[in-house]
Computed example of a mutant assay.
Amino acid sequence: MIQNPGFLLTILAFVAVIGPLVFVHEMGHYLVGRWCGVKADAFSIGFGPELAAWVDRRGTRWRIAAFPLGGYVKFKGDMNAASQTDPKWLELSAAERSESFPAKPLWQRAAIVAAGPAINFLFAILILAAFAVAYGESRTPAIAGQVQPGSAAAAAGIEAGDRIVSLNGREMGTFDDIRLYAQIRPGEPVAILVERDGAQFTRQGQIGAVEEKDGFGNSFRIGRLGIAPGDPVIEPVSLWRAPIVAIDRTGDIVRTMVETLGQIIGGGRSVKELGGPLKIAEVSGQAATLGVESFVFFMALISINLGFINLLPIPMLDGGHLLFYGLEAIQRRPVSPQVQEWAYRSGLALLLTVMMLVTFNDLSSFGLWERLSDLIG
Rank of each mutant, 00 (worst) to 15 (best):
T256R: 10
G173Q: 15
G230S: 11
A82L: 14
I119N: 02
E91I: 05
E259F: 02
V55C: 13
T289F: 03
F360L: 13
P49D: 04
S138Q: 14
L274M: 11
K213F: 11
E328A: 14
G320V: 08
P20S: 01
P5K: 13
S138E: 15
T256Y: 07
M316F: 09
K88F: 02
V292C: 06
A115F: 09
F101V: 11
I253E: 08
S346N: 04
M27A: 15
D176S: 14
I253H: 03
E159P: 11
L51G: 10
A155I: 02
A191I: 06
L352S: 01
G319R: 04
K39F: 04
G276F: 08
D162L: 13
V73P: 01
K272N: 10
G307Y: 01
V210L: 12
E341Y: 04
A246R: 02
I184C: 08
M299R: 06
R97V: 10
R57Y: 04
L128P: 04
N80T: 13
P243K: 05
F23Q: 00
S365R: 12
W62I: 07
M27V: 14
P149V: 10
L312P: 11
G367R: 05
A242E: 07
N168C: 09
A300Q: 08
L69M: 11
P49K: 10
A16V: 07
S166K: 03
W89T: 06
R63A: 15
A110T: 13
A13I: 02
G46P: 00
Q84A: 11
V24E: 08
G48F: 06
L193I: 01
G291W: 03
I11N: 06
M299N: 13
E195F: 09
A153G: 12
F298S: 05
F360R: 02
T174C: 01
G157I: 15
D374Q: 12
A242D: 07
A209T: 06
A288E: 00
R371N: 06
G208N: 09
Q340I: 12
M299D: 00
Y344H: 12
G215C: 04
F220C: 05
T174Q: 09
S138C: 07
Y135M: 08
F308R: 00
V237H: 09
G377M: 00
F175E: 06
R163P: 14
V296Q: 01
G33K: 03
V237G: 09
A142H: 11
T140K: 10
V254M: 03
V358R: 00
P232W: 07
D252I: 12
L363M: 13
F298T: 06
A191N: 13
H25K: 12
L311G: 01
G198F: 06
A114P: 00
S303F: 04
N361A: 07
M299C: 09
P87N: 09
D231R: 14
G59I: 12
W54M: 11
L69E: 00
G320T: 08
D86S: 08
V339Y: 00
Q331V: 09
E159D: 11
L312K: 01
G275N: 14
E370M: 03
A129Y: 00
